[in-house]
């Protein structure tokens, strides 16, 4: 039995027995090549589930939408499960209301190429799950091209980095797709939407684009699981993963660990430890 068939079978069983009210997974791909998220509430609907890892979405995002409906099963790759972990750590979800169907991920393919987030993925397999469907995936060697580009970025002067950052973010149309697809970006009112007082201007300009992206990056520090959903969602192709990787690297080097890999450890920036590096405070 192939993995998709096994997934469908388990989804059917869970729904038939009433163990869950819904199974969230990936459906067959649409014309844009993206597999839309599938919400199965009946065993018949579960027939369209696929265990393909081509769903560009982080499925944890949808758990927030249905968290008041009861127990929900979710198909989770490594990154989905890491986001779930962050949401559990932040008390946004209840573990007993989740049934995690883990799958090993071979990476999301976009336009014939592995998504840049997946090209350097260190955690293709879920670290928390209720059951694994199929075999775990092997951790692939990171794409040397991405590592090389990151190393080059590090060599740039602050002025050059600022210039490149400006050129990249100037193209942002502020559709907020990056924010909306991010499971760990769940504030009821985002600072950009605050209107009394208004914190960020609404015209299209670099300064406000910068404010949005830099504050978002800082809010995500230690919480971003580098799933790349925002990068794939951007309709104008802004290289958001470059910033995410950089922020994650800083967190890793200073505080240790990757976001969402250890349920018992709260996200790095939510705790203070006496031995935290703080040489920048003088």
């Amino acid at each position: 039995m192939d993995r998709s068939e096994k997934l469908r079978q388990r989804a059917r069983e869970l729904l038939e027995k009433g163990e869950v009210v819904m199974v969230i997974g990936s459906g067959p791909p649409s014309d844009s090549g993206i597999s839309p998220v599938l919400f199965a509430t009946t065993p018949e609907q579960a027939e369209n589930l696929t265990a393909s890892t081509s769903c560009a979405q982080n499925l944890a995002n949808y758990l927030l939408k249905v968290r008041d409906r009861g127990k929900v099963a979710v198909v989770a790759r490594g990154c989905d499960a890491r986001s779930i972990t962050v949401l559990l750590q932040e008390n946004q979800l209840k573990r007993e209301n989740l049934y995690i169907l883990g799958i090993g991920c071979e990476g999301i393919v976009e336009n014939g190429r592995k998504s840049v987030a997946c090209a350097v993925c260190r955690h293709p397999n879920p670290l928390i799950y209720d059951e694994m469907i199929g075999e775990p995936a092997a951790v692939a060697e990171p794409d040397p091209e991405v590592s090389r580009a990151d190393a080059e970025w590090e060599q740039l002067s602050p002025d050059e980095r600022w210039e490149r950052l400006s050129a990249e973010l100037d193209r942002c149309i502020r559709c907020y797709a990056c924010r909306q697809v991010c499971p760990n970006c769940y504030c009821p009112v985002c600072f950009v939407d605050a209107s009394m007082p208004q914190l960020v201007g609404r015209t299209h300009n670099l300064s406000d684009n910068m404010v949005y992206h830099i504050i978002r990056a800082l809010h995500m520090a230690g919480r971003c699981v580098e799933c790349g959903a925002c990068h794939r969602a951007c309709p104008v192709g802004i290289d958001l993963m470059r910033f995410n990787r950089r922020v994650a690297k800083t967190v890793r080097e200073r505080f240790g660990g990757d976001a969402g890999t250890d349920l018992s450890q709260p996200p790095a920036l939510t705790v203070f430890k006496p031995d935290d590096p703080q040489e920048f405070i003088r």
């Binding site: 249905v66 559709c175 201007g201 609404r202 015209t203 969602a233």
Partner: peptide
């Protein structure tokens, strides 16, 4: 409700739509 479950409520579709014509007026 069913259809909107998949939607993440970003504005990509409307900002890239050739006919979407809504606006806001803002002072800066």
């Amino acid at each position: 409700q069913t259809l909107a479950l998949t939607c993440v409520n970003c504005g990509a579709c409307t900002f890239l739509c050739p006919t979407c014509h809504c606006f806001d007026v803002t002072d800066e």
